[in-house]
């Protein structure tokens, strides 16, 4: 009752001729496989792009931290100097520097405009630090800051990084979920097409059983046809979608935050797995449908 997928794909003219060609189900299978592969390429691209985005956000915010010092104006410079001295002796800190007035003005400009009198405002001072590998002990640094400069607060960007990484991770999961749904829909639609073809060919199946055909022979005739159609359709859909993905404008050129929906490097090879995966789905779905149908016949 068993037969292997590679053997199935070997040409068998006799078995092919036994089942009459069925135009409608042939086109339906071809179209379904092509459409689903097309959508799967985009879902795959979305999933991969989300992964890159998550990595990029994480790496952009990782490795840096900010210390905000709020103190009465007369103590501000003292505490800044104390913090810088403390950082200079803290293991795991690569560089540390206090932002000057112009830099703070530039940070606030998007919200308050260019004419903000930064000097006249009681703004906290900011110290930007970069980590050395393998990083510093943030809890230990917080305790030391509390002792040396009570107005200093360490912000290691965890508050920002975590939700952004989570959002990108969920986007990646959404892409993976879409792929699973597409696979399920493909199997369901090919099953429907196979059931339709099997029902239309019941008289043929009865004749084959009558003259001594084993179930495996009959199943092979249908499964081979649907598997090859699904493989062809998926190949068409994949090539079409990959072409369109390649023609998408590159977001990097516009300086956008997104890295673009395209594939990168070996990522271009992943969509090429879709046609064989769709063929395997079609093989399994048609085989199950054919054996189910034959079970009802003597």
């Amino acid at each position: 009752m068993k037969f292997a997928l590679p053997a199935l794909l070997a040409p068998d003219r006799q078995a092919d001729r036994v089942v009459p060609p069925s135009g409608f189900t042939a086109q339906l299978t071809l179209f379904t496989a092509a459409a689903m592969a097309f959508l799967a390429v985009f879902a795959l691209a979305l999933s991969l792009a989300s992964g890159r985005l998550a990595d990029r956000w994480a790496s952009a915010l990782a490795g840096t931290a900010t210390i905000r010092i709020s103190a009465p104006p007369e103590q501000l410079d003292t505490q800044v100097a104390a913090v810088l001295a403390l950082l200079a002796t803290t293991p795991g800190i690569d560089t540390a520097r206090a932002l000057d007035t112009e830099e703070q003005r530039a940070l606030l400009e998007p919200w308050f405009g260019p004419d903000l009198p930064v000097e006249a405002l009681p703004l906290p001072r900011l110290i930007e630090l970069t980590e050395a590998r393998p990083g510093y002990d943030s809890e230990g640094l917080r305790l030391r800051l509390a002792a040396e400069a009570p107005g200093a607060v360490l912000d290691d960007h965890t508050r920002w990084r975590r939700p952004m990484a989570q959002a990108a991770e969920r986007l990646r999961l959404l892409g993976a979920l879409s792929l699973i749904l597409i696979a399920g829909s493909t199997a369901a639609m090919i099953t429907l097409a196979a059931n339709s073809a099997l029902s239309a060919n019941l008289p043929v199946i009865r004749v084959l059983r009558l003259v001594g055909a084993k179930d495996a022979y009959i199943v092979r005739a249908f499964v081979r046809r649907f598997t090859l159609r699904a493989l062809s359709g998926a190949a068409i859909g994949t090539v079409l979608a990959m072409t369109l993905v390649a023609l998408l404008p590159r977001a990097d050129e516009a300086g956008a935050f997104l890295t673009g929906l395209g594939f990168q490097g070996f990522g271009w090879l992943l969509p090429l797995l879709l046609p064989p995966v769709v063929a395997v789905l079609a093989f399994a779905a048609t085989r199950a449908a054919a054996f189910r149908t034959l079970k009802g016949l003597t």
Binding site: M1, R209, L210, V211, G212, A213, K214, D215, L294
Partner: peptide, 9 residues
């Protein structure tokens, strides 16, 4: 079912 098919031959 295979036995039946073989007997029909």
């Amino acid at each position: 079912r295979d036995d039946v098919a073989l007997s029909r031959r």
